[in-house]
Design a protein around this nucleic acid. Sequence first.
RNA 1: CGGGGAGUGGCGCAGCCUGGUAGCGCACCUGUUUUGGGUACAGGGGGUCGCAGGUUCAAAUCCUGUCUCCCCGACCA
Length: 434
Amino acid sequence: MRLSSCFMPTLKENPAEAQVTSHRLMLRAGLIRQTSAGIYIWLPLGLRVMRKIEQIVREEQDRTGALEILMPTIQPAELWQESGRYEAYGKEMLRITDRHDREMLYGPTNEEMITDLFRATVKSYKDLPLNMYHIQWKFRDEIRPRFGIMRGREFLMKDNYSFDIDGEAGRISYNKMYVAYLRTFARLGLVAIPVRADTGAIGGDLSHEFQILADTGESTLYYDKEIENFDLVSLTGDIDPTTIEKLQSLYAMEEEKHDAENCPVAPEDLRCAKGIEVGHIFFFGTKYSDAMNAKVTGPDGNLIPVEMGSYGVGVSRLVGALIEANHDDNGIIWPEAVAPYKVGLVNLRIKDDDCTAACDDLYQKLTTAGVEVLYDDRDMGAGGKFADMDLAGLPWQLIVGPRGLKNGVVELKNRRTGHREELSLSDAVNKLGA
RNA sequence: CGGGGAGUGGCGCAGCCUGGUAGCGCACCUGUUUUGGGUACAGGGGGUCGCAGGUUCAAAUCCUGUCUCCCCGACCA
């Protein structure tokens, strides 16, 4: 993508409304624009990052055998009246009336809807286990939206729902998701600690939150310091079951569940930290299947209420959380897996024909090699280009100017380490294309 | 919802106390200049001062109401 024809409205100064790092950088780097409290427009670069996160989440879901569907954002009130949550959810729920005066709502989650789908279609234990997910916008009318995208009212969430014949099978489904979440966050380059959590409004008895440690986090966690030695970021691909067992045996509790007096971890080994919740999984048994009469015929011919779990990942929140975990004073530092582009090609002298010819050629060669390049072909000073490129946080900057070209070299800068090296043009292409 | 703060060009702000024809920096446009970390000079465009009402010869400025946004808290994925 040529920057001259891209839409990346960067800001030199900090917007007054943004106090938190990720919020500030997202506005400054031109990833989002706010339209009202907790509601945002996603601009090209921000959207690209979110799509990449979404795709990683999707791949790890598909890998477990979960099936992707897409449920609507607008739901009928009846379903929620049936489960009892229409009243219980209170003002957080955005309620809408259609032209026929029918009560509708903008979905904050989809347990009712999928349970309704299930009971209408699945009749036999032979169709279990079943696990379906979707990646869809949600709306929760927060009392106080804050931290930019991280606590918005409208947000993109991956949520899935497991259906099993009994509690034992349900827990197997739950553990599958637990593992999928470890893999997902590892691929994103995030250390997300699974902590035991309260089940809250969703209900049930088994629940983990996946928390990224960050000072700006809203949750307080207590955990065994041993977890810090756990190499969570390398947990991609197939994960050894004993690793899971060991991880689950280590103490990690959300504040509400932490009991200082009965804590099995010695005080000197206990850590307390703030975390950003990026995933939450629940096993809640028959809470909704009982309320909504979702039953299947078992092997003995009798009707059995189905055992359910639900599992969420805050896809849009992850964009902010990733920035909280990956930035410096100059801007964002994207992990390669989610960077909007891999390389920023910086043409230092657009009016120099040789320089521009070299850049055009590099752009074409890299693009052909399948490398995602953001080519800064704007006619402006070098300082502004460097500043924008650091702000945007692409993993690599390929800097091309007349000075280096005279010696047949370009400069490759690693955004994260700041390390620079001079390379011939062909070496640069080979290195980035590898 | 309780407490605090703020709405003046795209962004950051001054002006308000003490009413008198709206200003600065950045950004933008034109030209010259400059060119490896936000170059310099000159010229230019853009704002019914959140909205509504009131006071006054006159309101960004004073009064009343209202909306919005931000921060702290409680709540929540």
